[in-house]
Design a protein around this nucleic acid. Sequence first.
DNA 1: GACTTCAGATACAGTCTTGTATTGGAATAC
DNA 2: GTATTCCAATACAAGACTGTATCTGAAGTC
Lengths: 220, 220
Amino acid sequence: MYLSWQEAIPVTKRLTRQQSRELTREQLLQAAAELFAESGVNGTSVEQIVERAGYTRGAFYGNFDGKREIVLALLEQRTQRELEEMQALSQEAESFDGLLEHLRTWHRERDETLAGWLALRTELWLYGMRDPELLPVLADRERRSRAALAQALEQGFAARSVTPPAPVEFLALIMHSLGDGLSIQRVLSPEDSDADVVVDAVELLMRSWSALARQAPDTN
Amino acid sequence: MYLSWQEAIPVTKRLTRQQSRELTREQLLQAAAELFAESGVNGTSVEQIVERAGYTRGAFYGNFDGKREIVLALLEQRTQRELEEMQALSQEAESFDGLLEHLRTWHRERDETLAGWLALRTELWLYGMRDPELLPVLADRERRSRAALAQALEQGFAARSVTPPAPVEFLALIMHSLGDGLSIQRVLSPEDSDADVVVDAVELLMRSWSALARQAPDTN
DNA sequence: GACTTCAGATACAGTCTTGTATTGGAATAC
DNA sequence: GTATTCCAATACAAGACTGTATCTGAAGTC
């Protein structure tokens, strides 16, 4: 406990008010993200959040109206990041190989922190699912992700001159869902798979669909 | 709110002690399951559980040592049911068609309650994932499910005289994960799919894998 | 450099939650 | 029918959590 965030983040003394406020907000969000992953949204108190971030409750209520607000902000932040990642993927991937390579890198980089990452994602999912106002936001995020993936698939098939065996939107839905599901399984029993399991699975699907398309191009 | 469980469950007066205790326990578990799905494990108090079940806190602490205990019991109960379902599936499914038909029935029956069912499942998953003692239990459940599914696939391929394009365990892992992932997507945006989406996806996979196996039986 | 503003700390009142200790009453034993 | 057992209700004490109201000191303004 000797190394607190103060050592890790070079805090230039004499911050402007705005800088200070933004820094506080950011650190609160970061602390909340960690704690939500560790103990869940409902299992985390405001007190715990500010304690980990190195503040007191005053700082929290000055920046957020309550726990719901910080969850909202976190959801927005993570949604933004996720969409950017998805767009990066769909842009880079002009071929199946490019797409696979991108995926491989992504999963290998995140494998260490997969459990925490997935826990936070799941917590936000559950929270959003129960909030009538948030559900459409979440649904929209997934829809955009799938759309980006569908576009990538479209390009990939075109590059290989293969007619997809089903609408690319459906294929994207499958692939997207598979990523979630496999991550869950991987967190539960890491010894039953490796970091590349998602890539391997996706690759198998690609090959299978290509085979099916060649075998019966008019059957879908 | 006029119809409480008392109307639904015919309570024969003059219960034996054991019967009474079992009934209480069962009703507490049922109430907990509903509330956990609605508000999460950490978002549910013991008070709320006993209130919904129609008791007071005394009944709870007479049957469970605390919230962790009832979560444990619930996890065990649900695990048991799930394994039975999975075994039923792997027994019935002597062919792909049988397996698909079974799946179709299952998903259509549960579609109405999918959100609640998945929420509870996810809550238990998160809870178990964070408890070092429970994680292996959950992992074991998934492993058994996948094993049953793998067996069904094995039979299915054999019946068609097709060599699977990859180890059936891997195919089962994919299929199992896909079920989870697609359910998540379906809960988020029901209008983007229908109750049969899992079956449709699985069917596509089956056809694809068969096509791949026929195309290059020696490539795996 | 004095004044103002505002980010964050501190203090506090109120509510919710938990777990235990005790009690009442119905089932069981004889 | 009386005594005993034990399931569930009730009462209570202690602690956690929330949100607000107030205070302090550093940043911003002139």
